[in-house]
Simulated assay, not measured.
Amino acid sequence: MSLLFQIFICSLTGVTGNQVFYFIGLENSTPTIGCALTNILPALTFILAALFRQESVGIKKTSGQAKLLGTVVCVGGAMLLSFYHGHMINIGESSIHWNYADSTGNSSTDKKSNLVLGSLFIMASAVSWAIWFTVQAKVSLKFPAPYTCTLLMCFMGSIECVVIGIGANHKVSEWSLRSPGRLAAVLYAGIVCSALAFSLTSWSIQRKGALYVSVFSPLLLVIVAAMSWALLHEKIYVGTAVGSILIVAGLYAVLWGKDKELKEEIEETEVTKLGN
């Protein structure tokens, strides 16, 4: 029962809270703000993991300094990539183009947005996501079965989201999947973004811990920038290039710190065995 309750908390935070808060926040803000604010995830996860003693800060050690500095650089690079453009870098145009994006990206909507409310919801999504990382790390210790855990978590989350969806929208037409685009989006979100993503992330947390996995999230901005240039003919700016370099540098610093910390723990264990 204790384990099922922890998986239920994972479903509330990772599946329901994270996605519902994010979609509401995105509806009331912009994609740029949405991408930027989600990159506070490594910092939030680092704080929670330290509070729950899943990560040792070890600020006096080189490994601890590398993890802390890498996290700050990673988040800073993500913010720079999102909010600063600078001069355009002329690297030519991609030979690949997604024509479908032209028909969907140019349609304007007259919705009223609330940037403050949207930003708060996106930050709430990041907090929910960070809580899921830390709780999932504890679940993985007691129940090292990431695929079964994902099944239970997504099953609980789907029930929670259905209840919220019915409460928020009673129109039957809004639940229709007759549109090919809507059907493809739902299948992709369910199969790739939920089932596959949660399984791989849970497995990675089980192997390497919450902070190690969360620090990869800013790579999303680098991948999106590259795909936007390739598929949507968007331009590459100085801010994009410098931000991408900082993200990779910060990621490397955290990974180096984690590797050094692991070696130090092994050395301390060997010394303790020799002393006994």
Score class of each variant (00 low, 15 high):
Trp175Gly: 08
Gly58Ser: 11
Gly118Pro: 01
Ala226Lys: 00
Val57Ala: 08
Lys112Gln: 09
Arg207Trp: 11
Glu267Gln: 14
Lys263Leu: 14
Val20Leu: 12
Asp110Phe: 03
Glu234Lys: 08
Gly70Met: 06
Val222Trp: 01
Leu177Lys: 12
Ile247Gly: 01
Gly25Trp: 02
Ser202Ile: 05
Cys193Val: 11
His97Trp: 08
Leu183Lys: 06
Asn99Gln: 15
Trp203Leu: 15
Ala126Gly: 01
Ser158Gly: 12
Leu152Ile: 11
Gly14Arg: 00
Ile89Gly: 07
Lys263Gly: 06
Ile159His: 11
Val163Asp: 05
Phe83Glu: 03
Leu211Asn: 14
Ala66Pro: 01
Gly17Lys: 04
Glu270Asp: 14
Phe133Ser: 01
Gly239Phe: 05
Glu234His: 07
Ile33Val: 15
Trp175Leu: 13
Leu115Gly: 03
Phe155Gly: 07
Ala78Cys: 06
Glu268Val: 10
Ile236Lys: 03
Ala78Ser: 12
Thr45Glu: 04
Asn276Pro: 00
Asp259Gly: 10
Ile159Tyr: 09
Leu274Gln: 15
Ala189Gly: 10
Gln136Trp: 02
Val72Pro: 03
Met153Gly: 00
Leu41Trp: 06
Gln136Phe: 03
Ala124Leu: 13
Ser103Phe: 09
His87Glu: 15
Leu152His: 02
Leu187Ile: 07
Glu27Ala: 06
Tyr188Ala: 13
Phe46His: 03
Val213Cys: 10
Ile7Ala: 05
Leu231Arg: 08
Leu151Val: 07
Leu262Trp: 05
His170Cys: 07
Ala185His: 07
Ser56Gly: 09
Val224Thr: 12
Asp102Lys: 08
Ser11Arg: 02
Met79Tyr: 11
Tyr252Trp: 15
Leu200Gly: 00
Gly167Tyr: 05
Arg182Leu: 15
Lys273Met: 13
Tyr100Ile: 13
Ser82His: 05
Lys60Ala: 11
Thr62Pro: 04
Tyr188Gln: 11
Pro180Ile: 05
Leu231His: 11
Thr269Ser: 15
